[in-house]
Design a protein around this nucleic acid. Structure first.
Lengths: 239, 239
DNA sequence: TCTGGCCTGTAACCTAGGTTAACCGCAAAA
DNA sequence: TTTTGCGGTTAACCTAGGTTACAGGCCAGA
């Protein structure tokens, strides 16, 4: 049930059976949550972290005027707010983008397992550092890439991340975001996100319908994205 | 000599004298480096982390076409690549923006102190999570704020961060970046960074000359930035 | 069955910021 | 002392992406 998370970890790191047990035992509860729910509000005090088992989440930040930026998307296997373990409150919101299954991991259990298994502590630290790497790549996109390159890049990244946890099939994946939500990931308006999507379709790179993304030409898509998966740290790590 | 780092830590967390000693002992060497040097190249294997004692560093990422985005600035007291302890290679470069004094902390020592002092482990983890929070705020800036608001925001953030380590004086601070480098932080062209700077000057909010930033109207500057320092986690933490 | 709201799609128009190309001042190098 | 090159500045012009507005399809709820 928490298997998808172990799958993500094991893609990068060896996990012993003791460690696996500790991870499995850390889950206090599994919750089912509908789409479009605010799970964590920026600033509220936290004493547990959320491990996404199924569905999509977003971390987002708002400006006083209402403009919203999604700073990271989360898919099955991701911890949405493991950084909350040390920060104790977040500087962003966490919302569901689809119906979700979510494991709740109390901070005291994270604390126990990191003290008992220092290596697991490093693994979780590594995991928040990987999140930061994904965010850095987003900054590069927002600051320097064109709209079409940015969108292509996001689709490439998600393909790799979903593939790691077995959520891709015949060159595509379920993509439950509306165009408004997609535009909030990319720092674009909905209108321009729509134009950009059209352009990717027109070039025969992707199709997006019925909440499913089909990648018709992955090389081509990676080309316009200038995609280099180095920042996803897919190789085996020594921790 | 490493005091500035302890100052930054102690602004947020209690550090015992044992912990302080462990931190001080972790430094293997102190290096002096000139401005505009590439300290760490993206992808190269790391076995130590760099603690900035004096001067300015930038983390930056480049596109194949040469466009550069600075994803974070570092000032005295900051670890530039503590995340390298778990990642073992970076997904970005680290360069000096001014002459710098830098302490080198071998990863094996970080490993020892985190195993011997689990609380220090959490403190360092916290510290990389704070970096990530700063990066998220940058994504919000790049994605949603106007050029002038973005630049004002950066100046406000740096004021707070420098103030923590006692690097501000009469409402200003040394700011060694060229306009080109500033523009790379903000996702703007040099020309537009210059225009934006003029506009902030014209509105009587700042002055920037001889590598020194003078904030003439902090409230006003925070206003155009819509600055809220929550993401800097300035309050005392329990770890 | 109707209705209202959200999502997608388009068109017309606008503007923030990019591009290109100068010029000036100054400091380091020759 | 001249030269060279970098940083800052400005102007003219351009374009990627924003804004506003509207229409059609779909679906959940009345």
């Amino acid at each position: 049930m928490i298997t998808v998370h172990l799958k993500k970890l094991r893609r990068r790191i060896e996990i012993s059976s003791d460690e696996e047990r500790a991870i499995r035992d850390s889950v206090a509860e599994v919750r089912h949550v509908r789409a479009d729910q605010l799970l964590i509000r920026s600033g509220e005090e936290l004493n547990s972290s959320l491990l996404l088992l199924e569905g999509w989440l977003a971390r987002s930040k708002d400006l006083p005027g209402g403009e919203r930026q999604v700073t990271e998307l989360h898919v099955a296997g991701d911890f949405a707010d493991l950084h909350g373990f040390t920060l104790k409150r977040l500087d962003h919101d966490v919302t569901t983008l689809s119906d979700c299954r979510i494991a709740v991991v109390p901070h005291e259990r994270i604390r126990e397992i990191t003290e008992k298994f220092p290596r697991l502590g490093r693994i979780y630290w590594f995991s928040t550092n990987m999140d930061a790497a994904i965010q850095r790549e987003l900054s590069l996109s927002l600051g320097q890439r064109s709209a079409i390159s940015r969108m292509a890049h996001l689709f490439c990244e998600l393909y790799v991340r979903l593939d790691v946890v077995g959520r891709t099939s015949n060159e595509g994946y379920e993509f439950p975001l509306t165009q408004r939500e997609l535009s909030e990931c990319l720092g674009l308006t909905v209108v321009h996100a729509n134009r950009t999507l059209q352009e990717l379709r027109r070039r025969g790179l992707i199709d997006l319908e019925n909440r499913r993304l089909r990648i018709r030409d992955r090389r081509g898509l990676e080309g316009v994205a200038e995609f280099d998966p180095g920042y996803l740290y897919l190789e085996k790590q020594q921790l």
